[in-house]
Design a binder for these strands. Structure first.
Lengths: 322, 322
DNA sequence: CTGAAAGCGCTTACAG
DNA sequence: CTGAAAGCGCTTACAG
């Protein structure tokens, strides 16, 4: 960890130039995709020298010169995901890396001052978010001139989710619907959109407006939530944790699922395959969402070889609970 | 998003200097904690000007000058956490921010080339990790001269976890132990240490070596795993998902838990409070782990006001499964 | 108590 | 086809 501890100083473009017997300008040009302006043999010399020295350009120098960095920031929602973050962002990381861009994650929330500082400091090319930007976030992005892309840029995914849950319940014959939020609203960034979509489906089907529930992941809360219902309800749940908790509470109360109570979850977490009966839920690739946001971002940034946004398909996982 | 779209160009230290009628050198000094070298009134002028212009120093300029950035990178393990990432890193973010350092998250894994590039590019002050660094990672850190801190820097937490699980099972009277890994080893970065600790407890207690199981989160795998056991075993599980799956499989087989089979999980995820019987598991604050790693890092970096590493206490959550 | 100067590593217009 | 020069924003030794 000491400077003289054995590791060589990182090579600079000047080192590469010297090693190759050329100027820094030439090194820079060749390494930035303008090799064709030079004699092939010159380009080779540069490449070899860079290789031999393990040269990595300094982000600082580049940033200073260009006024913007090669970073792309992804804001992580304040939620527990069923999926690994890794699985979600793997492809995004790769796609960006192919373009010389580096993905860096940042917890959303925190103070907006922090975001402001981060933008000022990193001067990222873009900010991606898996949940809608808040008003404050949007304003800061605009002020700093950093383009931001979220899940609402390309239609409202969460409305689709709520709609699909509700339509499934209606198709299964439930005439009274409810939407069950996760009580801690910090963890429920998507709930509002989904609840509203459920209400719309009800209205369209000529059903009464949905009952709105909120619970934490424990049996007391779940039991109380059931008190607000009568047998015959179909419940669209914020996520599988909520659905499994309601399933357990219903069992203790002697309500039969799916006869007395319909339950549809969201996420298809591993444990939803282990309940009895298996949970009916919705599955989708969060990684597709991330790639979708990314693709739209790259298009907007004018990358000519931007990937086409993959479709986000929501699939019903047929279980025994609705 | 256009440069002329209305947002002002970010202010530079030169702007602040001009606004305050002073030199850039003075601005820099005052803003970097050397205000006492100047007339109080001068310092005031600088502060006010910076405030009025919404000045944020450019990371690039600073980085170039100092040769190291104000970033600290945290590597996120390839695991699904029971807890929110936010809850884990909130305090770390704050503590770092107080010292003018910015936390940035990075998925661990990925190729080691990527890490190398990241280090070369960001020149972070330190890299923290919630799982032990791999050999390759450790080498790259050393080569780049970036200090790295992981969960083994201060004793082996995972050994503690495995030991506690095993000791609990032994204390409850189980004479044959097993350790149940999560099959997908990408998601099992901690399994090896824990299994070994279980084996040590067995040896110390004069019990046979533990049976080693591996399963995915589904009933087929769990049923197969049970085949390798006989009634009377106590199983230390990699996490609560594994434990709950085994609990369900045992129920289907007609084994009584905890009489025929003892189960102890790890993490105390919300759903572990909803099973029947309630899962016996281990709870700890992952945020304490993160803060612990951070505190050790700050001490090593020679910050004089480094926080003292908080103790990481592992608590048995008494349930009905062991 | 304050400022002029140098230089961190990079890239891009320009000159040859 | 290649190189010398300027400048991005910052901080630190130095001079006054």
């Amino acid at each position: 960890m000491t400077k003289d501890g054995g590791e060589e100083m990182a090579a600079t473009s000047a080192d590469v130039a010297r090693h190759a017997g050329l100027s820094r300008a030439t090194v820079s040009q060749v390494l930035n995709g303008h090799a064709h302006r030079f004699a092939p043999e010159t380009a080779q010399r540069v490449l070899r020298a860079a290789e031999e020295l393990g040269y990595e350009p300094s982000v600082a120098g580049r940033m200073l010169r260009r006024g913007s960095s090669d970073f792309v920031i992804a804001l992580i929602p304040h939620t527990t995901f069923g999926t690994n973050l890794q699985d979600i962002f793997d492809t995004v990381t790769d796609v960006l890396a192919q373009r010389g861009l580096t993905l860096v994650l940042r917890l959303s929330a925190a103070s907006s001052t922090t975001l402001d500082r981060l933008l000022a400091g990193m001067q990222p090319r873009a900010v991606l978010s898996l949940q809608p930007f808040s008003e404050a976030e949007r304003r800061i992005l605009d002020e700093r001139g950093v383009p931001g892309f979220d899940t609402t840029t390309d239609g409202d995914l969460n409305a689709d989710i709520g709609r699909l849950q509700a339509q499934h319940l209606v198709a299964r014959g439930y005439r009274r619907l409810a939407f069950a939020h996760l009580r801690d609203s910090r963890q429920d960034p998507y709930g509002a959109s989904r609840e509203e979509a459920v209400a719309q489906v009800c209205a369209a089907a000529g059903l009464p407006a949905p009952t709105v529930l909120g619970l934490g992941i424990n049996l007391d809360d779940a039991t109380q939530a059931l008190d607000a219902l009568a047998p015959g309800y179909g419940v669209a749940c914020y996520n599988d944790d909520v659905a499994i908790t309601l399933l357990t509470a219903a069992g203790q109360r002697g309500w039969n699922v799916p006869t007395d109570l319909g339950l549809i979850g969201m996420d298809n977490i591993p444990l939803s395959g282990v309940t009895a009966p298996r949970l009916t839920t919705i599955e989708y690739e969060l990684s597709a969402v991330a790639q979708n946001v990314l693709a739209i971002a790259l298009q907007a940034l004018g990358q000519d070889d931007a990937p086409t946004p993959p479709p986000i398909d929501l699939r019903i996982v047929a279980g025994g609970t609705a």
